[in-house]
């Protein structure tokens, strides 16, 4: 049996709605109007031990809710999830001792004390024997370069430094399943890379299963071979990441800054011109020829700066959602609209 096994999982919320403005507030004070929101709607998948899987989807798609149901924080409305043979929402301590949750936007460390104190609290909470604790801490210190950080008050650390400590605190008990919810949010590019490398290394060393949600396509492309795309609570793609990108976004985005104005027509031979206002232009070019197109452009027009970018994940996902399913998607995709 798979390590994570999910069938027909659903989570519905009842949220109250409030019209804007004073009268809306008054009305909602006396009579609440509720609406049923299907945050997760009939999702099913299996994940094997040691896999690194990315959850993709726009804001409010249900990624975080799914993660919270899997980690036992939320009771599912319907369906079932089995993780390591446990039912998550029963929150048995032998289950909780084998998983961990890291949230990029929330911290568990004590703000006023050095991170080390929070580590010691977690040691007691997870009942970690002293030897194992020392060893794990030494390894994490080496991997994350924690040495200069653990003795400073958490409030004095930078966001990235704090994230490193958060990760360490969450991994002291050597969990077998890691739930990472936007672990790199708000971090600068260097720190993002650092965290990514760490997650990859951790997965390689300990064979831990990693489930990751992120807004940054780079997180997902660097770490995950497999992605699950969720939108409006439904699973719309489950499979290989490269295959998905190749199928849905067989292009890269060239962003040009020009020294002298150029007409859109002049740029159109290189690819699909998405935006062009004289001194700036955005062109979609086929993946394989992107570098060549950029080189040609440098020669042909008066370019001040050019960047080659991956299409943003939101664009890919919304495109995916427009089509419903990847498998139904026609292979030819030019002119499908939906500028990033």
């Amino acid at each position: 049996m798979s390590q994570i096994d999910v069938h027909g999982l659903a989570k519905h919320y009842r949220v109250h709605r409030k019209a804007a403005g004073f009268m809306g507030s008054v009305r909602s004070f006396f009579q609440r109007q509720y609406q049923n929101v299907k945050a997760v709607d009939d999702i099913g998948f299996q994940i094997e031990e040691g896999e690194v899987v990315g959850f993709l989807g726009p804001n409010g798609a249900g990624k975080t809710t799914t993660l919270k149901v899997l980690s036992g924080l939320l009771h599912p409305t319907a369906g079932r999830a089995r993780i390591l043979g446990f039912t998550p929402h029963e929150r048995q301590s032998s289950f909780l001792k084998q998983i961990t949750l890291v949230m990029g936007q929330k911290n568990q460390l004590n703000w006023d004390l050095p991170a080390m104190e929070s580590f010691i609290v977690n040691q007691a909470i997870y009942d970690i024997p002293v030897d194992a604790f020392r060893q794990t801490l030494a390894e994490l210190t080496e991997l994350l370069d924690l040495d200069p950080l653990v003795d400073k008050q958490v409030r004095k650390l930078s966001l990235g430094e704090r994230m490193k400590c958060e990760l360490a605190a969450a991994l002291l008990h050597r969990p077998r399943v890691l739930f990472l919810d936007e672990p790199t949010i708000g971090l600068d590019v260097v720190m993002q890379t650092r965290i990514r490398q760490f997650v990859a290394e951790y997965n390689r060393r300990y064979g831990a299963t990693v489930i990751l949600t992120s807004h940054y396509m780079a997180d997902v492309t660097a770490l995950c071979k497999r992605v699950l795309v969720i939108d409006h609570g439904k699973l719309i793609y489950d499979g290989d990441l490269r295959a998905m990108i190749a199928r849905l976004a067989p292009y890269k985005v060239l962003k040009l800054i020009l020294r002298s104005p150029v007409t859109c027509e002049a740029l159109s031979p290189y690819g699909q011109v998405v935006d062009c206002n004289g001194l700036r232009a955005v062109i979609r070019v086929p993946r394989e020829t992107a570098t060549r197109a950029a080189a040609q452009l440098l020669g042909a027009v008066d370019v001040d700066d050019v960047t080659i970018e991956e299409p943003p994940v939101e664009a890919i996902v919304s495109e995916l959602f427009d089509r419903g399913q990847v498998d139904d998607a026609p292979t030819q995709r030019e002119g499908a609209g939906n500028a990033p």
Binding site: K68, S71, G72, L73, R91, S93, S94, F95, L96, K97, I99, T100, L101, M103, K106, N107, Q108, I125, Y126, D127
Partner: peptide, 13 residues
């Protein structure tokens, strides 16, 4: 209110 209660629930205590 902030949602950090998640960290309380996730602990085996």
């Amino acid at each position: 209110r902030m949602g950090t209660f998640d960290f309380v629930l996730i602990k085996p205590v």
